[in-house]
């Protein structure tokens, strides 16, 4: 069934339609939650919470933005709420982020290269976790999820200029950290 029909039925209280509709978005929502929260347990809690928030709100969705943008907005807000709650207790699991969130290694890689690549990925995930939340949100949405600048502005509820600045500074911070661990990334090369 196509999206608008599913939205209509979900708005009317049809849980099966809702589950089908959100089933199309859950993997992307989870990818975002993983990188915002830094570990699978918190990410799963956020996913659960976000789904319920979407359920409660869906009858009010008026189609002023795209459905996906709207769902991402709720997902982000849920993650940011969670992060604000546990401000002083960061809890990362870089291992899992790399296991789950990266394309499988090349068949042709030597074990040594495979290990180096894994370490480089883990380091980058760690650096992303070290970014302040607002910056992390913008970089994740742009460089991992591939959203356009104006969509990101809509998702995060601010203007495009601010988003560009956050992404630019976020990338700069990541570059600085990568440069400082260049031995890891050097061999990876381009």
């Amino acid at each position: 069934m196509e999206e608008s029909r599913l939205i209509q039925r979900a708005s009317g209280g049809d849980a099966a339609a809702f589950n089908e509709l959100l089933g199309q978005h859950e993997r992307r929502m989870y990818a975002v939650a993983l990188r915002m929260c830094g570990n699978p347990e918190d990410a799963q809690d956020c996913l659960q919470e976000a789904m319920l928030r979407v359920w409660r709100a869906i009858s009010g969705f008026k189609g002023q933005s795209s459905f996906s943008t709207w769902v991402y907005r709720i997902t982000m807000n849920t993650c940011l709420d969670e992060l604000r709650k546990r401000k002083n207790r960061p809890n990362t699991s870089l291992d899992t982020l790399v296991e789950a969130g990266w394309s499988p290694p090349d068949e042709g890689d030597t074990p040594e290269r495979h290990a180096l690549r894994r370490e480089a990925r883990q380091s980058l995930e760690g650096f992303i976790q070290e970014l302040p939340e607002d910056m992390r949100a913008a970089v994740v949405l742009r460089d991992i999820q591939g959203y356009a600048y104006d969509e990101i502005a809509e998702i995060l509820g601010t203007n495009v200029g601010t988003i560009k600045s956050r992404i630019s500074r976020g990338r700069e911070k990541l570059r600085e950290k990568i440069s400082a661990r260049s031995e890891l990334f050097d061999r990876y090369g381009v």
Binding site: E26, R27, R28, Y30, A31, L34, Q44, L47, A100, G101, W102, S103, A120, R121, L124, D143, I144, Q145, G146, R171, L174, R175, E176, I178, S179, S182, F185, Y188, G189, V190
Partner: peptide, 19 residues
């Protein structure tokens, strides 16, 4: 160099993760 490496890495990060 860091930028090139970061770009190459990001291209391997998945935007969708199995739940």
């Amino acid at each position: 160099r860091a930028a090139f490496e970061m770009k190459a890495l990001f291209e391997e990060a998945l935007p969708e993760v199995d739940v």
